[in-house]
């Protein structure tokens, strides 16, 4: 069958788009590479989503998934590798097969940006982590470093300061992009040492990470003995497979306004993978609604 809409990505944006599309009586297939829920499943406690004062990311994702399935959306765990234009129907290619549809919503989100230092991949799970709330507990009373300068890095450092004996916060500049209030809270902690104007240039490891080498702007090198390194240097939008079809900005985000439309009338973008100022749960779900409504309007005009 040819679906009305195929949605790529089952995070909050993609699943909300599915809800809106189903309520407009469109047939919907959601394709997801790993697991539904997206990035929010890493969050232990969501405190800024309207109505629920506290909800875990897992519970949020599960409720959203159940709501989407109950409305009749199909969800398959397959990674999308390509989207192809066509006269009669558009084709979405996955690692397992091909599906056809009339409109596509890209809600692929983003993945962790890596440090790009030799040996990084091999040390994931052996000292290197991209999720402080997942792995912080393994570093109780140990020495860790956080690298990054945004809110995620600052919040990770704050979270780890309560668990670890010592936390180094490594940042390539001397000021932070993240919130001043969090920086002040970090300064008030007795066990957080700021390592500024510095980059991680080498990872020293045996079986596990043993120390990191940092180089400052002046070229001075110093070695920090750590048990763990938490990498929080930003995220990369997952648009690589669609670069031939839609416009991406320099950082790889799909170029779009709040209307979620792209240069192609049948492709829409929703959530963290598009250009926008505020990447939050509530703006992701809002995008889902906007993109699906626009897709439904497009389909109805074609009919």
């Amino acid at each position: 069958m040819t679906y009305d809409i195929i949605i790529v990505g089952a995070g909050p944006a993609g699943l909300t788009a599915a809800i809106y599309a189903r309520r407009a009586s469109k047939s919907v297939l959601v394709l997801e590479a790993k697991a539904y829920g997206g990035q929010i499943i890493n969050t232990p406690d969501i405190e800024n989503y309207p109505v629920e004062a506290h909800i875990s990311g897992f519970e949020f994702a599960t409720k959203l998934y159940e709501q989407t399935v109950a409305l009749g959306a199909e969800i398959k765990l397959e990674k999308v590798t390509e989207v192809k234009d066509g006269e009669a129907a558009k084709t979405v290619v996955t690692t397992k097969g091909e599906y056809t549809c009339r409109a596509v919503i890209l809600a692929t989100g983003s993945e962790n940006r890596k440090l790009g230092v030799d040996g990084e991949d091999a040390l994931v799970g052996r000292g290197i982590s991209y999720c402080a709330t997942c792995d912080g507990a393994f570093y109780r009373k140990k020495t860790v470093a956080v690298v990054g300068g945004g809110n995620t890095a600052l919040e990770d450092a704050l979270y780890l300061a309560d668990l670890a004996e010592k936390v180094y916060l490594i940042h390539r500049r001397d000021s932070f992009r993240g919130e001043d209030a969090t920086v002040e809270r970090l300064k008030a902690k007795g066990n957080v040492e700021f390592v500024l104007n510095s980059n991680v240039t080498k990872l020293n490891a045996g079986k596990r990470l043993e120390s990191v080498e940092v180089t400052d702007k002046a070229g001075d090198v110093k070695t920090l003995v750590v048990n763990g390194l938490f990498v929080a240097v930003g995220r990369i939008p997952e648009n690589q497979n669609f670069a031939q079809l839609i416009d991406l900005d320099g950082a790889g985000y799909a170029v779009s306004g709040e209307d979620c439309i792209t240069k192609l009338p049948w492709i829409f973008v929703a959530g963290d993978n598009r250009t926008k100022n505020v990447r939050q749960l509530v703006t992701a779900t809002a995008d889902g609604a906007v993109a699906a409504t626009a897709a439904v309007k497009y389909l109805n005009e074609q009919a």
């Binding site: 790993k34 697991a35 499943i41 890493n42 994702a61």
Partner: peptide
């Protein structure tokens, strides 16, 4: 672990 969201998904 029970507190780990990605674990529950996996």
């Amino acid at each position: 672990a029970d507190w780990c969201g990605p674990c529950k998904m996996l």
